[in-house]
């Protein structure tokens, strides 16, 4: 495992931890073949530094609705469409912030851009030349969240 692979582990550990703390829902890495695809929303954040990257977190709307409901302590029926997108942006923001605390290599220190949302089903990311794309699927049988890190 090289350092870029270890960044993938750092980001997926960060995502699992922030979801557990913010929502009380526990998720862990699951085999990629379980991925049913068709994530409907993707939260994106640019990581700017000596070596930059882009963080993508994708999920199905009902799964984010469930997580958002747990986070604000309100029934799912009270979670609005705006809340769903806002919560996904906040998950991206908190994941990047948590990962930043875990990275000890100063060459990979970064600042966070403002997160934004892509509304599209099952986006796929292709990279060229020496750009690396690392994908991790996290879930617990009820919900799943896909994390992709490009650098």
């Amino acid at each position: 495992m090289d350092f870029i692979d270890s960044l993938g582990v750092i980001f997926s550990d960060a995502l699992a931890e922030i979801i557990a703390t913010a929502t009380g829902v526990y998720i862990d890495c699951i085999p990629p073949e379980i991925d049913s695809g068709f994530e409907e929303l993707t939260g994106v954040m640019g990581l700017c530094g000596k070596k930059g990257g882009i963080l993508f977190i994708s999920a199905k709307k009902p799964d984010i609705r469930t997580l958002c409901s747990c986070m604000i302590g309100a029934p799912e029926s009270e979670v609005t469409e705006a809340d769903i997108e806002d919560a996904l942006c906040e998950f991206v923001n908190m994941t990047a912030g948590n990962a930043k605390l875990r990275i000890s290599n100063p060459d990979y220190m970064f600042n966070l851009s403002s997160p934004f949302i892509i509304r599209s089903k099952d986006i796929s990311i292709a990279a060229k030349n020496r750009t690396r794309v690392i994908s991790k699927l996290l879930g617990n049988g009820d919900i799943s969240v896909k994390l992709t890190f490009v650098c």
Binding site: C68, I72, G73, A74, A82, D86, E90
Partner: peptide, 11 residues
């Protein structure tokens, strides 16, 4: 700037 975080804090 996150409405969801404001809701969490308000709760």
């Amino acid at each position: 700037d996150s409405a969801v975080i404001r809701k969490v804090i308000k709760a």
